[in-house]
Design a protein around this nucleic acid. Structure first.
Lengths: 190, 190
DNA sequence: GATTCTCATTAAACTGGTTTAATAAAAAGT
DNA sequence: ACTTTTTATTAAACCAGTTTAATGAGAATC
């Protein structure tokens, strides 16, 4: 759990004993490609940390798959919207590659935050991080063209294009596969 | 500061003494229409709570004003992105109506979170709220048509249309004024 | 090795927006 | 009250995407 320890440390200073307390609740799990960690209508009470692998977070709106996010190595994730609000999810979490993750139940996460002021702070800073990520998403969706968003994704997460089919990336960018293909062509011929 | 007290209470249980501790740092301020609370290049070290009035949060991208949010009565706000990251802002916070707000400095916010575990938790839950708001924004930008977003805004924040010029609402929705006008016409003639 | 399935590209017709510019109406300033 | 400024609508030309359908190429299955 070195990677998980390191991740926690990257947010804020937590004492060794606090970190030990937190880590005891995590358990390592392996998920096969094609597994659903979550489906619509279900309550989600698990938080995940990816050690190795890739998971997509998407919804189906009027028959169209809408990819909200891809999670990869080093990401903490869950359907945070349903998790926080404690409502049935509208989303899928689908394992795109064989994945190794550390998992923890919400009730244990709450025990951790309850355990000390420092760990509660870790919780606040984690939420800040989640906010920042999401804010950048809003910024890009609102203020950048589809082409600009494609180019940025290519720059910032190039490995995604190696491991995820293009039609899912198109959906993530808010495009159809045809639309993305056109953009790629436009770029390559100039 | 009844409204501010109530707002804090709505997040989590905080003892009377903790609440007193927090409230001491807020001061009431009045801002005239047209005032900028923030401009690009500046560090923001203030958090605001609106008692009465309206403030827009926008950026200028390639010459175009891009409204990210409107804040009104009962909203906690700042340029949370620049505030968290402690980087110079890219944004404006412009007072759209004469506004009464309670303001607090970041260093005092940090004192508050430091003061007790319960207040730290209040901080975490506030961040969760900010995340949820922003998540819904991503959802709508990605998965709804412009027309659907317009209709929803009309339903959910009808008073905005009374107090904010339409071209700013267009920008908030990710449209030009001409585009919004067309959508309004399309809806009214069916 | 042949077949099937999945995925990316292309073409053609279409659509919901944009840009630019003109007009009208309302609000603000003198 | 008159003028100026701000805001919303409309029209016309345009464009970046969509939808549908066909084609091709690679990977998986038998």
């Amino acid at each position: 759990m070195k990677d998980l320890q390191q991740k926690i440390r990257s947010f804020t200073d937590v004492s060794d004993s606090d970190r030990e307390f937190a880590l005891q609740f995590y358990k390592k799990e392996i998920f096969k490609k094609g597994t659903y960690l979550l489906q619509p209508g279900v309550f989600i009470n698990t938080f995940y940390f990816i050690k190795k692998g890739c998971v997509s977070y998407y919804m189906i709106e009027e028959g169209n798959t809408q990819v909200m996010e891809f999670f990869t190595e080093g990401d903490f994730f869950t359907d945070l919207f349903a998790y926080i609000q404690e409502t049935p999810s509208d989303a899928y979490l689908e394992v795109l590659e064989d994945t190794i993750a550390y998992t923890i139940y919400k009730k244990d996460v709450e025990k951790i935050f309850e355990h000390s002021h420092q760990l509660e702070r870790f919780g606040r800073l984690s939420m800040q991080k989640a906010f920042i990520n999401n804010f950048q998403r809003v910024f890009q969706l609102k203020n950048l063209s589809n082409q600009e968003r494609y180019v940025r994704l290519l720059e910032r997460r190039p490995s995604l294009f190696q491991r995820v089919p293009q039609y899912l990336i198109a959906s993530y960018l808010g495009l159809t596969p045809v639309g993305l293909s056109k953009i790629r062509k436009r770029i390559s011929t100039k």
